[in-house]
Nucleic acid binder design. Structure first.
Length: 472
RNA sequence: GGAGGGGUGACCGAGUGGUCGAAGGUGCUCGCCUGGAAAGCGAGUGUGCCGCCUUGCGGUACCGAGGGUUCGAAUCCCUCCCCCUCCGCCA
């Protein structure tokens, strides 16, 4: 979420950010630009109503304390006169208050819809074609014969059972079997041990979050389709809720439009999830400090956590989703930084090195992309992607995305720090990066390390974690 | 799931309708004292928003959340959430 003051004083910067981020889908630009204009109007109206309301509240308070004084002095007649004066004031205050609340609600809606402003150094571009390849590290392995894609290797060595996963749950929910499962556990321990050695505090987070948390990190309201949803309430609960609301309604409001609006708000409330299975550990780990004021001396905070992640990934198909390339449930170690706002780009470099060095330790060739404005997503101010080479598919697979959100998430979550004792609290900056996502790492390890005799050699650093050095 | 108790500022804790944004204490900041420190003494110390003559001043809201009663609510009423204790169930 952007700061209303930024929008108020630099509407052009905000509009430029909208154009830059939505360059790939121009239809949405006009709509969002209109929202910026509406926001300016709403803000203006909101403030003038507040000023007017507060003047009246002030008079009301004066009258009330006079009434109290008069009553104590026994001058009930005088007090009665004052009480009469307050009734009109009260009505005016109520009316103004309604306007203020409506404006505040609308203002928040509009603000939540505006994307973060990209850092000035981010390359301008519309699609992934415009991302900059900053560096390619390591050499692609060479093969005498055509290397196999990982889904053939997992079949051959009984490492992953996609079919039974599909039977038991659905497509995109594989079983890892035998050495496949042990390899996953090895990655888990390897990544967490590395993170701990690099100064991260290990966390085990809840795997479901509430809607407030999902909004805090930016999954709601913009990316609801990304997440699965859990409702605790039964159809009977829903029926009761609707019935109660209809009964409570003071006479039928006027006209279809009014009714329709009410129904829509009812549906929205009833459709909201009670919980969301996390799409990434970023959500619980960053929300850990939601609505807190952190002692400045405690910054930076660095957390790591292993969790499964669930994603709906609606509408994806084809070679992209073959094998381990894209799953509805996958495992990941996530790294999160909560830092002083002046330090966030330094922290981004550290975070980047933390992720990259893990790839280097595993001996996987990778490249680092600097994401352009159009491909970086709603909440980020700056984003790198790390992609590993997948020899069997002859393509690059994204295994980590490393982002600085600056104060965008912190403002939604109200995570602040106090620079000095007695100083005013300021928003922190938040960052996160995958360190790393397991399935594509597994795919690359299998494909890149396959041998002519059909065996797979595992990198040295994993041997002590797997208990085996190769898969025959 | 059943029964009961409770949610007040960074923390503890008073406050049951009228100068209560909230006593007292702890912590913290500054000053005095000291060779230095502790102790002691004195002063200060919440957040958001709005306005203005914008290193500050004024106003307003906030005592778990939302609604209600009242001229006036931390205090009374209703709904919800969370925490604790006991019983039951349970990986």
């Amino acid at each position: 979420m952007l700061d209303i003051e930024t929008v108020r004083s630099h509407p052009q910067r905000v509009k430029e950010a909208v154009r830059a981020k939505y360059a790939g889908s121009p239809d949405e630009i006009d709509d969002l630009l209109d929202r910026v204009d509406e926001l300016l109007e709403v803000d203006e109206a909101r403030r003038s109503h507040i000023t007017e309301m507060q003047e009246k509240q002030s008079r009301q308070n004066d009258l009330s304390s006079e009434i109290g004084k008069l009553k104590r002095e026994g001058k009930d007649d005088e007090a009665e006169k004052r009480i009469e004066q307050t009734s009109e004031l009260k009505e005016e205050i109520d009316a103004l208050n309604e306007k203020v609340e409506a404006a505040e609600t609308r203002q928040r809606e509009l603000l939540l819809a505006l994307p973060n402003i990209p850092h000035s150094s981010v390359p301008v571009g519309a699609t992934e074609e415009d991302n900059e390849i900053e560096e390619t590290v390591g050499d692609k392995p060479s093969f005498d014969s055509e290397p196999h894609p990982h889904w053939e290797l997992t079949d051959q060595h009984d490492l992953v059972d996609f079919e039974r996963g599909a039977k038991v749950t659905g497509s995109g929910f594989p079983f890892y079997t035998g050495r496949g499962a042990r390899l996953q556990r090895a990655l888990l321990n390897f990544f967490l041990d590395r993170a701990r050695d690099r100064g991260y505090q290990e966390m085990q987070a809840p795997l479901f979050v509430n809607p407030e948390s999902a909004e805090g990190t930016g999954q709601l309201p913009d990316k609801e389709g990304l997440m699965y949803k859990i409702k605790e309430s039964s159809p009977e609960d829903v029926e009761d809720e609707i019935t109660n609301r209809l009964l409570k309604r003071e006479e039928s409001p006027n006209g279809e439009a009014e009714v329709r609006r009410e129904v829509r708000s009812m549906i929205n409330d009833l459709m909201e999830g009670d919980f969301y299975p996390i799409p990434t550990a970023e959500v619980p780990l960053t929300n850990f400090h939601r609505d807190e004021i952190i002692d400045g001396d405690d910054l930076p905070l660095k957390y790591c956590g292993y969790t499964p992640c669930w994603r709906r990934e609606a509408g994806s198909y084809g070679a992209d989703v073959r094998g381990l390339n894209r799953l509805h449930q996958f495992d990941k170690v996530e790294l999160v930084h909560i830092v002083h706002p002046d330090e966030s780009y330094r922290a981004l470099d550290t975070l980047l090195r933390d992720a990259e060095s893990a790839l280097e330790a595993l001996g996987l060739p990778y490249r680092r992309l600097l994401m352009c404005t159009g491909d970086m997503g709603f909440t980020q101010a700056f984003k790198y992607d790390l992609e590993v080479w997948s020899a069997g598919q002859e393509r690059w697979l994204e295994v980590s995305s490393i982002s600085n959100f600056e104060a965008f998430q912190a403002r939604r979550m109200q995570i602040r720090y106090r620079p000095e004792p007695e100083a005013k609290p300021r928003l922190v900056h938040t960052l996160n990066g995958s360190g790393l996502a397991f399935p594509r790492i597994l795919a690359a390890l299998l494909e890149n390390n396959q041998q002519p005799d059909g065996t797979i050699e595992l990198p040295d650093v994993l041997h002590s974690y797997t208990g085996f050095a190769q898969i025959e």
